[in-house]
C-alpha cells in the first residue's frame, strides 16, 4: 500500500510536469506499482500514448487468491474520482487480457462482475476522466491455472441452449437519484480457447431509461464468467431497459422496474 502510494506520488509529479503540453514523452511510462512483466505492453495496447497516472483512488477489490478460477469476483470503484467517462478492466497475464469496458454515462464508475483467470496476474482498472487522463489502479490475484482454457460448465450440459440470453434482474433504490442494478444473463461466454468450442460471448449490454436515454453501456469480452452477474450503480430513479447482444448477433432485452 505504501509502495503503491509512493508510486502514485511519483506519477503525479511526472504528470504534473508533462501535462498537457509535454505529453509527447508519454513513452516514459511511470513505474508500475504492481511490477508486472507486461505493463509496458498493456499500456501501449490499451492506453496508447494517452496521458496516464497510477491513482490509488481507483480500486480493484477482489479476494487475494482465486477460490474458483472460473468465477473470480471483482468490484471496481473510484471513491473520490469524478468525471469518469470510460472504464477499462484488464488482467495483464491472462491469455485474453481485456475483460470489460464500461461507459457510465449517468452512473457511478463502479462495477461488480466475475471473470475467468488462467494464472496469477495483476487485475487493473483504467478510468479515463473527461480531461483525457487515464487513472489506473489494480491488485495482484493469485491463481494456479486453468480458468480460460477450460470449457464452460453449461457447454457440457446443454443447459444454455434452452435458456440463452434469459435475464434475471432487480433494482435497489439507494438514495434519491441513485439505484443499484444487479443482473444475471444466461450465456456460456466461451473464450474460444477450450479445444473444439468456438468463441461465443455477450459483447454489449446497454442500460437505458424508459425514454430511451442511455444510462450506461457495457462491453464484455471473453474472460467475463459464464452466466454473467453484473452490479452497477445508476444515477437514475425508475425502470431500466436492458438491451444486449452477443457476437453472433443474438439480441436480448428486458425491462426492470424498481
Amino acid at each position: 500500500m505504501s509502495r503503491a502510494r509512493a508510486a502514485l506520488l511519483v506519477c503525479a509529479l511526472w504528470c504534473a510536469g508533462s501535462l498537457p503540453a509535454h505529453a509527447a514523452t508519454a513513452v516514459d511510462t511511470p513505474v508500475d506499482p504492481l511490477n508486472s512483466p507486461s505493463w509496458q505492453y498493456m499500456r501501449q495496447r490499451f492506453l496508447g500514448k494517452d496521458p496516464m497516472v497510477f491513482d490509488a483512488r481507483v480500486q480493484v477489490q477482489m479476494p487475494s487468491a482465486a477460490e474458483d478460477q472460473m468465477q473470480v469476483p471483482v468490484h471496481v470503484s473510484a471513491p473520490g474520482l469524478t468525471d469518469v467517462v470510460d472504464v477499462l478492466v484488464f488482467a495483464d497475464l491472462n491469455p485474453l487480457p481485456k475483460i470489460l469496458r464500461y461507459q457510465p454515462t449517468s452512473a457511478a464508475p463502479d462495477i461488480g462482475f466475475r471473470f475467468k483467470v488462467e494464472q496469477s496476474t495483476p487485475v487493473r482498472a483504467a478510468m479515463r476522466t473527461r480531461d483525457g487522463v487515464w487513472h489506473v489502479g489494480g491488485a495482484w490475484l493469485r491463481a494456479s491455472g486453468g480458468g480460460c482454457t477450460a470449457p464452460s460448465v453449461g457447454t457440457g450440459q446443454g443447459f444454455w441452449q434452452d435458456r440463452l440470453g434469459e435475464i434475471s434482474a432487480r433494482l435497489w433504490p439507494q438514495q434519491p437519484g441513485l439505484e443499484r442494478l444487479r443482473l444475471r444473463m444466461i450465456h456460456p461466454m466461451d473464450t474460444g480457447l477450450a479445444a473444439g468450442i468456438p468463441v461465443f460471448h455477450i459483447d454489449r449490454i446497454d442500460m437505458r431509461a424508459s425514454d430511451g436515454r442511455l444510462l450506461a453501456s457495457l462491453q464484455t469480452y471473453e474472460p467475463v464468467s459464464e452466466n454473467p452477474v453484473i452490479s452497477v450503480d445508476l444515477q437514475h430513479s425508475g425502470p431500466v431497459r436492458i438491451d444486449a447482444h452477443d457476437i453472433q448477433g443474438n439480441r436480448f432485452a428486458a425491462t426492470v422496474t424498481p
Partner: peptide, 20 residues
C-alpha cells in the same frame, strides 16, 4: 469466510434476482 462467500453466494443471490 471469503471462501464461503465464493462457494455459497452465487446460488443465494439468484433467489433475489427475478426473471424478466
Amino acid at each position: 469466510y471469503r471462501r464461503s462467500v465464493s462457494h455459497l453466494y452465487p446460488a443465494i443471490e439468484l433467489t433475489t434476482l427475478p426473471r424478466r
